[in-house]
Every structure is written in structure tokens, then in C-alpha cells.
């Protein structure tokens, strides 16, 4: 079993085309899924720990335990999307193959995250700033994600409309992953905030993105509240 595992892990990294071909033919799904699950758990666990190391102490453990769940839950929600969309693009495949493909693509991402983890850990120790940590972590995730996209693209085959299908599935996957991660925050933890396992539910990541965008432009919550107030007055609306 260990030889099989090592062979599949090597193939995941070195020859994504052969993994994609196996999945398309429905061959070795279990061994691919088994190796992918292991890679996913280890890769995200280590990367989560590294992200949490920015704050240190208990946050390392919390982030290491939560990141695998983000991947797992995101996959569980995006596999049906891939399955339904494939059918709509006239490339119906069994559900198991859609699950194996998404799992393998995420595992490849996780393995690259594992490779990037030491460099990120060092960078987080050298550059202590919160914003630098956010940018570096996001860049690492984006870079690793590209490796997974490559496998997913191959797994969708040479069918017509592949780019539209890939775009749709990736959009759904990114939105879901962002919302799941948002639901399980904090990850890096601002210096002023307390370390907790999960913060109470609050809005969506999209609101946070908008807020961060406004903040970057120098428009803060209080400024926006005043602007909204002025707008209401201009329209004669009650407060």
C-alpha cells in the first residue's frame, strides 16, 4: 500500500496528466482518493500551522486544525457544482469521478502549500507586519492553487466549452472557499485581537473585501456612515 501511495503522490506532482487520465477512465479512483486525502490533510495542516505561527502559541494549533476543514468543506460543496456543470456541458461523468478530480486537484494544491510552508514560515518570522503576512499567505495560496487548476483543466478533457466550464467551477470553488474560510476565521489574528478558535458568525467575506477596499482607499467605516447619513437626508428618508 505504501508503494502505491508513494507512486500516486509522485504522479500527482510529476504527471498530473496521467492522474487526470486515470480519473477520466474511472481507474484507480480509490488509490488516487486515498493519497489525495492524505496529501490534503498533511499539506493544509502544516500550512495552517505556519499561517497561525504569525501570532504564535495556541493560534498555530487552531489554524492547523481549521485549514483542513476549510478544504474538506469547500470540496464537499463544490463537487456537486462540477458534477452538475459537466452534465450541462454535455460531458456527464459519474459523481465519483468528479469527486476524485476535485480531490486530486486540491491535493496537488496542498502539496505545493506544503512545499511553500518553510519559506512562508521564515518570511513570517522576518517580516513581522500583519499586512505583509496577509499578502504573503494569500500569494502562497494563489500560487499553490495554480498547480491544482492545471490538474483540474486536464481532467475536464478536450471538450468544447472547457474554459467556460472551468471558469464556472473555479468561481464557485473560490467563492465557497472564501466564505468557508471567513466562517472559520481568525487565521492570522491582528495584534490587538484575542486568540479564539472561531469568531461568532458575521456577514460574508464579500463585505469584508469591500470594507478592506474602502480602508485601502482611506475611507473608513465612520466616513462611510456619514456619507450614508448625508445620502438619506438628501432623499428625505428617516434615520
Amino acid at each position: 500500500m505504501s508503494a502505491d501511495l508513494s507512486h500516486t503522490l509522485t504522479a500527482l506532482l510529476r504527471s498530473p496528466a496521467s492522474i487526470a487520465a486515470s480519473i477520466t477512465e474511472g481507474r484507480d479512483l480509490r488509490s488516487i482518493a486515498r493519497a489525495s486525502l492524505l496529501a490534503l490533510l498533511v499539506g493544509t495542516l502544516v500550512f495552517g500551522g505556519v499561517v497561525g505561527s504569525h501570532r504564535g502559541s495556541l493560534q498555530m494549533l487552531y489554524a492547523a486544525l481549521k485549514l483542513p476543514w476549510v478544504s474538506m468543506l469547500t470540496l464537499a460543496l463544490s463537487v456537486p457544482v462540477l458534477h452538475g456543470a459537466r452534465a450541462a456541458f454535455e460531458r456527464p461523468e459519474p459523481f465519483a469521478q468528479s469527486a476524485a478530480l476535485m480531490l486530486a486537484a486540491s491535493a496537488r494544491t496542498a502539496l505545493v502549500l506544503l512545499a511553500l510552508a518553510p519559506a512562508l514560515a521564515l518570511a513570517l518570522q522576518v517580516l513581522r507586519g500583519y499586512h505583509a503576512a496577509v499578502v504573503l499567505s494569500a500569494l502562497s495560496y494563489g500560487l499553490a492553487g495554480l498547480a491544482g487548476v492545471g490538474l483540474l483543466r486536464r481532467g475536464l478533457g478536450p471538450a468544447e466549452g472547457r474554459l467556460a466550464l472551468l471558469g464556472f467551477v473555479l468561481s464557485a470553488h473560490l467563492l465557497t472557499s472564501a466564505q468557508v474560510a471567513w466562517g472559520l476565521r481568525p487565521w492570522l489574528v491582528r495584534p490587538s485581537a484575542d486568540v479564539v478558535l472561531v469568531r461568532p458568525p458575521e456577514g460574508t467575506f464579500a463585505e469584508e473585501l469591500a470594507r478592506a477596499g474602502f480602508s485601502a482607499a482611506g475611507i473608513y467605516d465612520s466616513t462611510r456612515s456619514k456619507a450614508r447619513e448625508a445620502e438619506r437626508r438628501a432623499h428625505g428618508e428617516p434615520r
Binding site: L73, A76, L77, S78, P80, V81, L82, H83, G84, A85, A87, A88, A172, T176, Q179, V180, W182, G183, P201, E202, G203, T204, A206, E207
Partner: peptide, 30 residues
């Protein structure tokens, strides 16, 4: 059936967004 298959695939994700997006702004986004 094509429309139905795409929407069926989105059911779990939609439930998740509906249950996790709090507040009016979150609901608007969902």
C-alpha cells in the same frame, strides 16, 4: 434538464451561503 442539473449541483453550496451569510448585506450577497 440541463438547467435543472446545474441548479441541483448548486443546492448544497446555496444552503451553505444562506445559512452562513448573516445580516441584510450578507443576504443581499447570497
Amino acid at each position: 434538464s440541463t438547467t435543472g442539473m446545474v441548479l441541483a449541483g448548486l443546492v448544497p453550496l446555496t444552503v451553505f451561503f444562506e445559512l452562513s451569510a448573516g445580516g441584510p448585506d450578507g443576504q443581499r450577497f447570497a
